[in-house]
Design a protein around this nucleic acid. Structure first.
Lengths: 148, 148
DNA sequence: TTGATTTATATCGTTCACGATGCAAATATA
DNA sequence: TATATTTGCATCGTGAACGATATAAATCAA
């Protein structure tokens, strides 16, 4: 068996699996509020800075607008956000939190801690997390650069 | 701003992004053969050991059968695999590579190297990869254990 | 200013993921 | 041996992802 084809030698498969399993850990916490994980990411972005155009949100999440637009439409239908036509640039749609969207921040305050403790293990703890973060950031930076 | 809500402090977001971007790096190489990334993963599993029931493939990929079944149906339609009723256990469907599925191994021989060089960077190189692999394996093991 | 190009967003089609549910074959229990 | 339970796989519905394409507003060029 050629080494390069062994599943256990594949970085991408590890990332794919770790990502899926960790996202699943969020599920019970988020579904309680009727949210999905990508919707939660949009909230994180808007809690940092409210009233952003679709494109800024998409860029922050390394997603395309054709992924983000339907996601935002669903969130708007849920009354979490509103999408208003940009006043200076008529093409833009400015996404803002509603009162409900802002209130979710309190409801979800414990989520990061709950997930943090769910994933804490030998390799992931306060001392080693920065190392892991740096590695992943390097990978993201390298791959994102190729997109341009 | 509360630290725990900063996108830049989120492990899951990093894994999610790194996974998506790295999967995208596979796309031009795989689509050449009409494959998707999850289909490529199924091939990796079958190249390691041919003729496996659906459940074994799903478990190996940490996926549910309701994800794998439609995926296999599409691969069967493409003539890459066949799904035969199990002889000893009539509930099982044994998935086997066709001649075409086996031949793809040669066609895709360069994929791991191409992707490897695309992602190679400061943090990911022969010396540091094992460390990263170990961390991701720890996360997967910890989260997978909670599923049982 | 008119026409061409770019930009911001939306729509469409296909393929995952995955919770929920259904069904038939195998196994356990009464 | 009947009946109940479990197991393996499939189907269905919803929400991402993402390539391809469309549309309208803004900008650039002639």
């Amino acid at each position: 068996m050629e080494e390069q084809f062994k599943l256990d030698n594949q970085l991408c498969f590890r990332l794919y699996t770790a990502s899926r399993l960790l996202t699943q850990a969020y599920h019970p916490l988020l579904s309680e509020q009727g949210l999905t994980y990508p919707q939660y990411l949009v909230l994180l972005v808007l809690w940092e800075k409210d009233a952003q155009p679709v494109n800024d949100i998409a860029k922050r999440l390394f997603l395309e607008t054709n992924t983000v637009t339907p996601l935002l439409q669903r969130m708007e239908k849920e009354g979490i956000i509103v999408r208003a036509k940009g006043s200076e640039d008529g093409r833009q749609r400015i996404v803002s939190l509603t009162r409900k969207g802002k209130a979710l921040k309190k409801e979800l305050a414990n989520v990061p801690f709950a997930v943090g403790s769910a994933v804490a293990c030998k390799s992931v703890k306060p001392e080693t997390a920065p190392e892991l973060f740096r590695m992943l950031d390097d990978i993201i930076a390298k791959l994102d650069a190729k997109q341009e």
